[in-house]
Amino acid sequence: MTDRKTELAANLERVEQRIAGACAAAGRDRDEVTLIVVTKTYPASDVRLLAELGVTQVAENRDQDAAPKAAACADLDLTWHFVGQLQTNKARSVAGYADFVQSVDRAKLVTSLSSAAERAGRELGCLVQVALDAEAGGRGDRGGVAPDGVEELAGLIEAAPGLRLGGVMTVAPLSGTYAGQPAAAFERLREISTSLRAAWPAATMVSAGMSGDLEHAVAAGATHVRVGSAVLGVRPALG
C-alpha cells in the first residue's frame, strides 16, 4: 500500500507540474483549473489513497463500478462526477451519489435525472456533453449532442427540478472535422461555452482534456481536466 501511495503521489506531482505549466503558458492562474481524477477500473482503496494525497474530485464512467465505490468511500469528503454515457434506467442510481453528471446529451435523460434527483432530495449539477463530431441535430459516436442542440438542451436542464446547469463537456473527437486536432476542438468548445454563458451566466464549467491533451484544454480555457492513466497508470483490462 505504501508503494502504491508513493507511486500515486509521484504521478500526481507530474500531472500537477503539467497543469501548472499549461496555466503559466496560457497566462492563467493555477487555481482556475480543477483536476478531476478518473478512477474507472481502479478500486476504492486507490480512491482512499488519492484522498489522502489531497484529491477532492473523482470521476467514474460506469454506474456498476461507481455506485459500490462511492458507497465504500462515503465517509470521504469527495465530489463525484459521472462522465460516461448514461442509460436512463441508471439515472436513479447515479443520482444517489454523483454531484455532477457531465454526460447529459438528450432530453429523455434530463427527465430521468430530474425525477431521480427529486426522489433522492438532491441537486445534481449537469453539463451538456458536446459532440464536436456530430452532424446537425445528431449525436456523436461517444455520446454528446451536436453543437446546434446545446442551447435547447441547456434550457431543459435549467428548467428541470433538481438539476442545475453547470456548463459544457467534450471529449476530443476521433472522427470528423476535429479528429486529431484537440487544440481546435477545445477552442470550438470555448466558443460554445461563451455563447452558453451569455444566456446562463452561472454555467461556467468547461470540462475538457484528458491525460494526453490536457495542455490544449487549459490553453482553450478549460476549468476542469479529467485525468486517469497519467495518475493511476495504464488501466487493467476490464473483465
Rank of each mutant, 00 (worst) to 15 (best):
Q17C: 05
A160E: 02
Q85T: 10
A24H: 02
G137F: 05
H216V: 00
T177Y: 11
V15F: 10
L12Y: 03
G121A: 09
E158K: 13
S195K: 14
K90M: 02
A117L: 12
Q181W: 00
R164W: 05
A220P: 06
R62F: 08
A185S: 15
A74R: 14
S112A: 15
D77Q: 14
F186Q: 00
F100S: 05
V128H: 11
A217D: 10
V58A: 07
T79I: 08
G155F: 06
A91M: 07
V83E: 06
A74W: 10
W80P: 05
Y42I: 00
W80F: 05
G96H: 04
E60I: 08
T177S: 14
M169V: 09
P201K: 11
Q85H: 15
G155Q: 08
G121Q: 06
R226Y: 09
R119I: 11
N11K: 11
A219Q: 13
C23W: 00
T39Y: 06
V15A: 10
Q181N: 13
E7C: 00
T41F: 10
R235Y: 06
A230Y: 05
P68T: 08
A91C: 10
A199G: 02
H216G: 06
S229M: 06
D99E: 13
F82T: 00
Q57W: 14
A51T: 02
A184T: 03
G176D: 05
A66C: 11
P182L: 09
T88H: 09
L174R: 13
M210F: 11
R190Q: 12
Q129A: 03
T34D: 12
A9M: 01
A183H: 12
A44S: 13
D99W: 07
V171D: 12
V94M: 07
Q64K: 14
G27P: 08
I157C: 04
